[in-house]
Design a protein around this nucleic acid. Structure first.
Lengths: 199, 199
DNA sequence: TAATTCTGAGACGTCCACGTCTCAGATGAC
DNA sequence: GTCATCTGAGACGTGGACGTCTCAGAATTA
């Protein structure tokens, strides 16, 4: 039973990120509460969707804060951001799927702010000579966010181990974004060699 | 006016990929037809959504075919796939957002087939020593598809030039996926140095 | 124990998107 | 020209999700 709002919102994300048209019954059941209690917490469906989006944006903004993306070396900042954002990847997956959904200006503004911070990070990295300049900062921002969303989907569907998420995201993205690709690292604590998938 | 089914479906994708709960009125308007004609082409909303998904899967399967991803060097195969898939990136964006939507087994099976082909490509590339083995083939498949979807979204929103799409996708993804990253290439016909974004 | 608060289950009415139908006008074939 | 075919606009009924309400039972507190 999840009575506090954020817990319910996270349960809602688990359903809405894959089935945006899910009924309130289903969302309530996923949260382990009744439809009545769901209505007590959120006035209606629109309010619920809105708060889910707000929670995602607040979490992503918090990840940008804790990673202090505005400071220091761009590569190190991005690695910090990966670690900070991966725990909330599911929320980012929801945002990626319908970031144009809201008529609300306050949400769109908040969204723009976070994207701008991400864009600035890549722009700074390009100026520092860390990130490739053949790829526009806008594309790097979009691709990074999409990969975070992909991490969220993969974990939800059980196709990616949560422990491997940050490593997989950082290695794949930085490999393509860095101007001087680093030598392949030895791997995470629990390496996932795909040979084990072989018959 | 778009009377043939595929054209209507592509117009529907443009709306549904960003607003999955869009009304049929809106979809019809986006396709330049009336709601009555939309109902003449597709029995109902479920049928429309289903056909959109089927079109996306057929297009992606066709891209895998034309790229002959089962043949030859894995890196070259992936580059061919990029070129073949980018034109239908918008459809992939729709699939990425709600690939678990369908109760229909025929669609899920078709989906699994294509994902398996992608997975096999990465597995073969890893065996060839082309792709990194620290990243699982499953994650590479997911990430590739998510980036294709990201290309679709970016183009739709005008954040990525269609001419740069294939280059941006291939360079970013292969940079992170290849075992021996290639030296940075000079760039596409219309390079997009992000310095031009600077104030 | 007794009182208070909160929740779940269910019933009920409302509203809106959907599906269907009709008909006038446009388009095209002959 | 005539006829056939197709489309758009609009009206209409329906279904189902949604929002509200009530009430019994559980959980918490004193």
């Amino acid at each position: 039973m999840a009575t506090d709002r954020d817990t319910v919102l996270e349960a809602a994300v688990g359903v809405l990120s894959r089935r945006p048209t899910a009924h309130l019954d289903e969302i309530a059941r996923a949260a382990g509460i009744s439809r009545a209690t769901l209505h007590r917490l959120f006035p209606g469906r629109d309010a619920l969707i809105r708060e889910v989006g707000l929670l995602g944006l607040r979490r992503f903004a918090a990840a940008l804060d804790t990673a202090t993306v505005e400071d220091g070396d761009a590569e190190a900042a991005l690695r910090r951001l990966v670690d900070a954002a991966v725990p909330d990847a599911a929320l980012c997956a929801f945002l990626a799927g319908e970031n144009q959904l809201y008529d609300d200006d306050s949400i769109n503004d908040l969204w723009e702010v976070q994207i701008s911070r991400l864009h600035a990070l890549f722009l700074r990295g390009q100026q520092q000579g860390v990130f490739r300049i053949e790829l526009s900062a806008a594309w790097l921002s979009e691709a990074f966010f999409d990969l975070v969303a992909g991490v969220g989907w993969s974990i939800q569907d059980g196709r990616l181990a949560p422990r491997d998420a940050a490593f997989s995201l950082a290695e794949l993205f930085l490999g393509g974004a860095l101007r001087r690709p680093p030598a392949p690292e030895p791997g995470p604590a629990t390496p996932t060699p795909s040979e084990t998938d072989m018959p």
